[in-house]
Design a protein around this nucleic acid. Structure first.
Length: 337
DNA sequence: AACACCGCCTGAGCGC
DNA sequence: TGCGCTCAGGCGGTGT
């Protein structure tokens, strides 16, 4: 056995690496659910207070909440009742009704390192896997605690387990609310339907009232929640839609194909993540979804899997975009062309 | 109201 | 090989 059961970790190489999107967040949710559900949080370690944004009514002095107020908002002393997800956002709900909304941003992760029972010595790694040694320095100390300089929050459970929020780039964050209704009113009401269950009927009206490029619209979390750069590119390739197509020009058939495509792609990625979670996470920390072959993302210049022509790279909505202009033609000619 | 754009961050990867 | 530069990107906030 390897020495660290990692519920979720990011791949270390940038080249094929991905920011956490919906499948990764769902994998995290399923991973920490058995650890957190019904458990009481004994204390919360807050190593970077500014990563946590309290709801205004959770502190009398919003500008400078006390350590105690922050810990209370992060469910110190509370029992976890459920774990929810909407799009890329994860929600921890306590039996008090309090909610902690976690956003992983670009580089965030939630990990639950193994609980080491006091009397039982840890066995050395025994698999024949020949992996390069961990890049972590000072393995004996920092690796055992699983803390990195970028571990901002640690929840300590009464059962001895820990859940840690780590986010080197700090594009992510944690938002706390006194109850579910406040979370909805202040945050989740701004999101569209979750991508996993969104229907063409829900999406269509939102597309018809804008001429923005379809890619920009799909990245907009208020239209559909959970799609990011990778999955939008993959979706549009599968549905054979050019990313610059004005959203209002898409046919009903195209919209249906598009929604079906992302359902399928997201489900595949979750399945891969889930299967890896069941087995374990390999020594390099690559979760299962990492093994998924992307058809276009990060493949600019490489041959299109469909027509073998080099894939095109362009910028849409200030995002790097890869597509095959042959396989993803503009369905309609635009006036300015 | 709808939309564009800025700035926040760090590490991977590249060129020299 | 090593150093420093560029790029990547979700999204909250601000400006048009």
């Amino acid at each position: 056995m390897h020495d660290c059961y990692t519920i979720y970790t990011r791949p270390h190489s940038h080249h094929n690496s991905t920011m956490p999107e919906l499948p990764e967040v769902e994998t995290v949710r399923r991973g920490i659910e058995p650890i957190l559900l019904g458990q009481t949080i004994e204390r919360v370690q807050i190593r970077r207070p500014d990563i946590v944004r309290l709801s205004p009514n959770q502190t009398p002095t919003p500008s400078r909440p006390s350590q105690r107020q922050r810990a209370a908002a992060l469910l110190a002393g509370k029992t976890v009742q459920s774990l929810e997800r909407l799009g890329k956002q994860l929600l921890i709900v306590a039996d008090s009704g309090q909610c902690v909304c976690v956003h992983l941003g670009m580089s965030g992760s939630l990990r639950s390192p193994p609980h080491i029972s006091p009397g039982k010595p840890k066995s050395a790694t025994g698999t024949g896997r020949s992996s390069k040694p961990s890049h972590r320095t000072n393995l004996s100390r920092s690796s055992r605690s699983h803390l990195s300089p970028h571990t901002h929050i640690v929840w300590h459970l009464t059962n001895g387990h820990r859940v840690m929020f780590t986010d080197p780039r700090r594009f992510g964050g944690i938002w706390t609310y006194p109850d579910h209704a406040t979370l909805i009113a202040n945050r989740w009401s701004k999101l569209g339907p979750d991508a996993l269950v969104a229907t063409p009927a829900q999406i269509r009206p939102k597309l018809q009232r804008t001429t923005r490029p379809i890619k920009a619209v799909l990245l907009d979390q208020s239209v559909v929640a959970g799609l990011g750069n990778i999955y939008v590119d993959e979706t549009l390739f599968t549905a054979r839609i050019h990313p610059l197509t004005p959203a209002n020009l898409l046919s009903s058939l195209q919209i249906r194909k598009m929604v079906t495509a992302w359902h399928h792609i997201l489900a595949q990625a979750i399945k891969a993540g889930g299967s890896t979670l069941r087995d374990y996470v390999n020594a390099t920390g690559d979760p299962g979804w990492f093994q998924i072959q992307h058809q276009v993302y990060s493949r600019a210049g490489q041959p299109c899997v469909r027509c073998k022509r080099p894939l095109d790279k362009l910028t849409v909505a200030a995002r790097t975009t890869v597509c095959c202009t042959k396989c993803q033609p503009m369905k309609f000619r635009r006036g300015s062309d």
